[in-house]
């Protein structure tokens, strides 16, 4: 399933979607960046409440399919601009991390 399809099916808001046709497989939830790099698989959907600029570097270097900011967390302008520049997809939702995982787990 592509990032665009996932966003549409789960009503996730597009925050930065420079590569919406990217295929996502599986998911990972967590806020500690080294855990994400150690455990998340490439092309996965990464659910987090961490929204600082370093999530973009992590997602880019670890080939994450898309970041999903849960719990109504927002990203600032600088994060959005950097994500667009680096080709990192960011979606957001009001759902909790758990609800988000349940929702996407039915699809990917």
């Amino acid at each position: 399933m592509t990032v665009n399809e996932l966003a549409a099916k789960c009503s996730l808001n597009p925050v930065a979607v420079p590569d919406g046709e990217k295929e996502v497989e599986g998911g990972y939830a967590g806020d500690l960046l080294s855990w994400v790099m150690g455990r998340a698989r490439e092309n996965c959907a990464w659910i987090t409440i961490m929204s600082n600029i370093n999530i973009v570097a992590v997602a880019s270097l670890a080939d994450i399919g898309c970041i999903i900011l849960a719990e109504g967390v927002t990203a600032d302008e600088n994060v959005i601009a950097t994500a667009n520049e680096k080709g990192v997809n960011i979606l957001s939702t009001q759902m909790t991390a758990y609800e988000t995982a349940v929702a996407i787990g039915k699809l990917i």
């Binding site: 806020d31 500690l32 960046l33 080294s34 855990w35 790099m37 150690g38 961490m50 370093n54 999530i55």
Partner: peptide, 15 residues
């Protein structure tokens, strides 16, 4: 608070 400092950096480098 930025998400670093999980103590997993060196283990990840080795892995």
């Amino acid at each position: 608070s930025l998400g670093f400092g999980a103590g997993m950096g060196l283990p990840n480098m080795k892995r």
